[in-house]
Amino acid sequence: MSEKNERRPLPDPASAELRGLISDAETRAVYDVLYQAREEPLAMPAIRERVSALTGKSNLQMDRRLRSLRTHFDVPARRVPEKRNLFVYPLLGWNPDADKRTTRKNIPGSVRALVHHTYGNRCAACGRTPKDDQVKLVIDHMVPLDLGGTNDPENLQLLCDEDNHDKQALFADHQENADALRKSLSLPEVHLRIGELLKAMAGEDVPKELIVLVAREENNGDPTKRMRELRSLGWIIKNSQRKKGRRVLSFYRLEHWEPWPPGGPQAAVVRLERARRRAKRAQKAPSGTDLRSTAVE
């Protein structure tokens, strides 16, 4: 957070300043509850209960209210230790670039319908559905708005509440790397996105989950394959694992990198793969066979 916004006091819930920022009364009620609970942040059930008491309403669409608040304020989702599905939501202060942001526009119903159709009404991360698994699905920005994402359909996916909260918590855990994430997420090739993130965090163990988010590949892609491809370009990337409860977490640490090849890493990886296939065919071909006449790329 910038020094300016660290010193900038949060608006009082009843102030004209807050009403000027947030026109929706229910969203201001959510802010009020978070503001009053700054010393001891609340989990979602308690937030819902207190906001319902303030507004007299139960159907509050809390995900949308929080997204609206995050246009201006830093409200991360923080996992409660040892409780995988429980998160608290502290109101930490202003967003660093709050004055430069435009208010988050609601995603049109037609776009929401398109996203549900595209993902077959399934969570993009775990595949669960409301009908079969009783999960709630939300529209998620693959690249978060505060990291340069947009409301374009190509940047939207369906996530269940659990996976959406996990993603929010992961980004919150790496808030100090926001600049590296913002730069990486905007790059056009998957190898560039992963590689530049590793370079920015060189010497640190980068969790696989963060690699997957930056890769932005359908069905979570294959980080192990991408690491192999980067190694084929001369990069040295170490893999390690740690046990956390019942889960085994994977991490990648960059120890050496090479400049990006002319034409980009994707083209270089394709050339290397073609050369590998030709060499493999050459080993299998009978002596005297002219591979140039049989090779098909």
Results as ranks from 00 to 15, higher is better:
L10Q: 06
N177T: 09
D152S: 15
G20V: 06
V75I: 15
K199F: 05
L66D: 01
M44H: 03
L10R: 06
V88A: 14
E39L: 14
S58R: 15
W94Y: 12
S293H: 12
G234A: 12
R50A: 14
P45C: 07
T118H: 14
T129K: 08
E189M: 08
P286R: 14
L291S: 13
H117V: 10
G245D: 09
R228I: 11
Q168I: 00
V248M: 03
D161V: 11
L192N: 01
V111H: 05
R70T: 11
R226I: 05
E49G: 03
R216K: 15
R128P: 00
S2Y: 01
R101W: 10
V111Q: 04
P286D: 09
L69I: 02
V111T: 15
P261E: 00
R101N: 11
L254V: 04
R281V: 00
R79K: 13
K284F: 02
T150Q: 11
V190F: 02
P76G: 08
R128Q: 12
N239F: 04
K238P: 00
P153H: 14
V212C: 12
N121R: 15
S58G: 04
L147T: 08
E39C: 13
P144W: 04
P9N: 06
P223I: 07
H165M: 14
R8H: 08
E49C: 07
L156I: 02
Q266P: 00
L91A: 11
G120R: 09
P45V: 02
Y35W: 15
W235E: 04
T118P: 01
D173S: 13
K167F: 03
N85S: 13
R247L: 11
A29C: 14
M44N: 05
P153T: 05
S110C: 09
L60R: 06
S287H: 09
K199W: 06
V296C: 11
L147G: 09
I139C: 03
V214A: 02
T55V: 07
V214H: 01
M62D: 09
D173V: 00
D166S: 10
R70A: 09
